[in-house]
């Protein structure tokens, strides 16, 4: 089912309390101890030294060659950091985090996989507001809100809004049923990909190709003034005198195209990272305005207005 249709249908049945929800596959790591912020800050591309309670920061982990190895959402909860990352690379990221703890630092790392989950509810802003029992509470897009043992954060996009909820995995079913009734719609990966493409949200499908943050348009998640972090030298060099060899774009096709690597009629190499059928994301070398022809298929393309990471 098309996500646009799902959202439209939902608006008609608001009063029945249904919702569309997607359960993310992400890793959960908790860092605690008085030096945990300092420790994690040395590994990532953003500066989290001033992160406040219930604030979250989206950031990247890169290797020494500046290539993205993981994307993280770091949420500060009092003296703890809850770190959400990509499941497929979680083991490597945790190894990096644990192996780099200075002997004299107070840092403990814990694994929250299987125990914690992130669920996104997609609906109109008005309906999302109803998820929180205290209706007078206005959700702040920059801060998480705690209700009971759950954390909430709203993000507004052009066509729809999304409420991220972090909760215990064992409570997902009961929470959805209690709040939205038994007929809520669990979105598939394909549904979620449609939402991602529509709203410029990148995921593992984009990161797994050994790319630089700039190539994915993620410069806003890189702070070159924070000091050294793995990959910083490469990012700084690129910023001062580099030219990107390839770039992410959004495509629309006249026919269904699957993810994979293709060569166009005029010799351009393209890598379809996410396809929802006739549109999606792709990485391409130095492309100007021209459309791309691959056999009997024609791709038009556009820049991403805003790019987020999930």
């Amino acid at each position: 089912m098309h996500l646009e249709n799902v959202v439209a249908v939902n608006r008609l049945v608001d009063n029945m309390g249904k919702c569309d929800y997607y359960i993310h596959e992400c890793s959960f790591t908790v860092a605690e101890g008085k030096d945990s912020i300092e420790h994690i800050n040395r590994l990532i591309t953003s500066n989290i030294k001033l992160i406040s309670n219930l604030e979250s920061v989206e950031t990247l982990v890169c290797n020494a060659n500046g290539r993205i190895t993981d994307s993280l959402q770091i949420l500060r909860i009092e003296e703890q950091l809850l770190i959400l990352g990509i499941t497929e690379v979680a083991e490597n990221t945790r190894k990096l985090i644990v192996s780099g703890i200075h002997w004299n630092e107070d840092v403990r790392i814990m694994n929250g996989d299987m125990i914690l989950s992130k669920v996104s509810i997609i609906d109109s802003e008005e309906n999302l507001q109803k998820v929180i029992p205290g209706k007078d509470i206005q959700l702040n897009e920059n801060k998480w809100f705690i209700w009971g043992e759950k954390y909430f954060k709203k993000t507004t996009y052009e066509e729809a809004s999304k409420m991220d909820i972090i909760l215990k995995t064992s409570e997902i079913g009961r929470f959805i049923e209690d709040e939205f009734g038994p007929h809520s719609n669990k979105l598939t990966k394909d549904d979620w990909n449609k939402f991602r493409v529509e709203n410029g949200i990148l995921s593992f499908e984009e990161y797994e190709h050994n790319l630089l943050p700039s190539e994915l348009g993620l410069d806003k998640f890189v702070d070159l003034k924070k000091g050294c972090y793995p990959g910083q030298e490469i990012h700084a060099r690129l910023e001062s005198r580099g030219k990107l060899k390839r770039k992410i774009k959004k495509f629309n096709s006249n026919k269904i195209i699957q993810p994979g690597k293709y060569s166009s009629e005029n010799g351009k190499k393209i890598n379809i990272t996410t396809s929802t059928g006739k549109n999606g994301f792709f990485i391409v070398n130095n492309l100007e305005g021209e459309s791309i022809e691959i056999e009997d298929l024609s791709l038009s393309h556009e820049e991403l207005d805003s790019i987020e990471i999930c």
């Binding site: 290797n63 020494a64 200075h102 050294c228």
Partner: peptide, 16 residues
Amino acid sequence: LVISAQSGGCSGYLYD
């Protein structure tokens, strides 16, 4: 003299 390593730096770990 304590020689140690910690995460960070351009290449992944820093000597201390």
